[in-house]
Design a protein around this nucleic acid. Sequence first.
RNA 1: CGGAGUGUAGCGCAGUCUGGUAGCGCAUCUGCUUUGGGAGCAGAUGGUCGCAGGCUCAAAUCCUGCCACUCCGACCA
Length: 439
Amino acid sequence: MLLTRFFLPILRDTPKEAEIVSHRLMLRAGMLRQQAAGSYAWLPLGLRVLEKINRVIREEQNRSGAVELLMPTIQSADLWRESGRYDAYGKEMLRIKDRHDRDMLYGPTNEEMITDIFRSYVKSYKDLPLNLYHIQWKFRDEVRPRFGVMRSREFLMKDAYSFDLDQAGARHAYNKMFIAYLRTFARLGLKAIPMRADTGPIGGDLSHEFIILASTGESEVFCHKDYLDFGVPDENTSFDEIGRVQEIVDKWTSLYAATSEMHDQAAFDAIPEDKRASARGIEVGHIFYFGTKYSEPMKAVVTKPDGSSAPVHMGSYGIGPSRLVAALIEANHDDAGVIWPEAAAPFKVALLNLKQGDAATDGACAQLYHALAAAGVDALYDDRDERPGAKFATADLIGLPWQIMVGPRSLGEGKVEIKRRATGERTLVPIADAVAAIA
RNA sequence: CGGAGUGUAGCGCAGUCUGGUAGCGCAUCUGCUUUGGGAGCAGAUGGUCGCAGGCUCAAAUCCUGCCACUCCGACCA
C-alpha cells in the first residue's frame, strides 16, 4: 500500500477528550474517529487491526470445533419476552420501534436468538454437542461510555454459544473454549489470566473472566505470579480428549486469581509474599455456563437416547475484538506510539523513502516494495514528500513491527537500514537481503 | 443517574471577568531553498464563536432555556 494512496489522518496533537493512552494513540494514529458518545468509526488503519484480531479469534474458535454463523444486529422483542429478559434488561438495551410500531431492539447479546435458531432445527441428542458463534456489532446503552473503544456503547463481540445434553457435556464445551481463549490471547501476544467470575444465580465454578494486566486497567485484580509463566496449550492439543482438556483447565485454575468483586483476602494472604501480584486488569474475555436458563423457558429440548426429552445445557463465551484493540495498545506502547505484536499489526513493515524524488532512493524503494509484495509481506510504503523526521515519527506512531529505511547515506554502500519497532534495534543489510531479514 | 467541567478554523488554545467589527501555534495551499528524527523564508486559504431566545446603539463576551461532549463516582463485555 502506498501511503499517498491510503487514508491515514495522523494527528500531531492529542485531542483533549482522550484520556487514556490507547484512546489517544488510536486517534493520533488515524485508526478511529468518534461519531457520538461511545460510538466510533473505524478508519482504514484501525479496521485492519480489528480484522487481524478477528482472524486469530476465528482460527482458534474453528480449531476448537465451534462453527461460525452470523445473526442480525436488530432483534424482535418477542424472543426476549419469551426468556423474560425484555423487562429485566433495563435501560442498557436500546429499544426501537419499526414502522408497524413493533418493538425491536439493537442486540446487546444473542442468547435468545441463538436458542431460537437451535430449537428450530435440532431435535436429537445425536446432533450434539454443538457450538455456534458469530462476530457481530452489539449495542449497550452505557450510562457513561469512556476510554474510547475500551468501553463504548457500540462494540464488536465474538459470542459463542454451546449446546450439550447434560452438565458433563457442557463442562467439556466450557473447557474447550477455555483453551481456545488461552491460545487466542497468547497468539495476540497477551498474557491473559483466567479469573473466577461471579456466576450469578446459576452458581457453580463455571465462569471465568480473562484478564490482562495493565497499569491503566479498569479494575483491581489479584493473582499468583506463577500464572505469568504458565505455558499455553499448543496447536496440536486435541479438543476431543476430555481428560486431557480437563487437566489443562485444572492447571490454569489451580492458583489464586480473582477480580476485586470475587477477592478473598485470606486466600491471597496465604500465597507467599513474593508470589503475590496485585495490579490493574482489563477484561478481554468472559466465559459462562448457564445451564438451562434459556433452553427451559424457550423450550430448546432434544430427545435423549432413552426417548425422553430434556432442555439442553448451554454456555456462552465472549471476546470483544474492538476492546482488544485498545487492550493491545495499553499493553504495547512507548512514548513514540504503538508497538503492534505481529499477529495484530495493520501492516508488517513500513518502507520509508528518506529522500523522496531522489532517483536512487525512489528506485531502491520501488524495487523493495515489489519484492515485499512478491514475498507476501504486507507493506506500507511512505512515499510522501516529507522530510525524514516526519516519516520516522509517523512510522513510530503507527507502530508497525518493522521499518525499512532507504536513504542516500546507506544506499551509497548498497544497503538499507532495518529497524525493529519493539526494541529499537537497527541493522544495515544489503538491499537484496532486506526482505529475508524481516520475513 | 449524582457531582464537576468544556463547547471559538481540521487539531491544540487565547480572548469572556471589564460588551466595541475574532486572534495565536500546528495543519492545509502557492513559491523558493532544504532532505537521516515532526525544516526555513515569503505569501495565502479557512470561523453562522454549540443552538435558540432576550437585554443593548452594539454580544464570543451579559441574562434565560436547550443541545453536545469530557472527567470523578455508582454500573457494565
